[in-house]
Amino acid sequence: MIRIQKAVLILTVVFLAGIAAVESAYAGAMLADLENALMCKCDDKCGKVLINCTCSTSDETRKKFTKLLDSGLTVEQIIQQQVEKHGETVLSAPTKKGFNLTAWVVPFGALLVGGLGLRRLIQTWTGKNDSGKKGPEGEGEKISSTGPSKYSRQLQDELDRLEL
């Protein structure tokens, strides 16, 4: 059982490490696409990201950005310019600093806390079950000290097959 738990732990760590690596690989390129990073600011307040918007304002904005990029401004400078003009609301996602950082951290934090809580809950529940299995005269200990018998293995195999 310990072997299985270790295997699961290693797989989880590898998966999470993979995700972390992917995150860092992309971080630099995140603001590369202006259309993705900025909202459309049309009069209708369509509430769409520029890349998803098809109104005439969005077309004009795209043309304007193309000119600005051609003039030598960087993506970050254009974004900064837009934030100064329209406020933070022009950004399609919260920045990753200050109070806005909570937007990014809280979902993963909640998941982590939930995961730890779940682990504890399962530990409690499995512990309860283990103690429940122990007979009044320490039969459970006796069985566990000798390891699973031939019959308990057979029972487990049959239970596995029952799933068919």
Partner: peptide, 20 residues
Amino acid sequence: ISEAVRGVKITVGPPFYNQV
């Protein structure tokens, strides 16, 4: 929440949801 805490209106769009 942002408007209530900081008084600043922000947008949470697709990049946030895709990353999270």
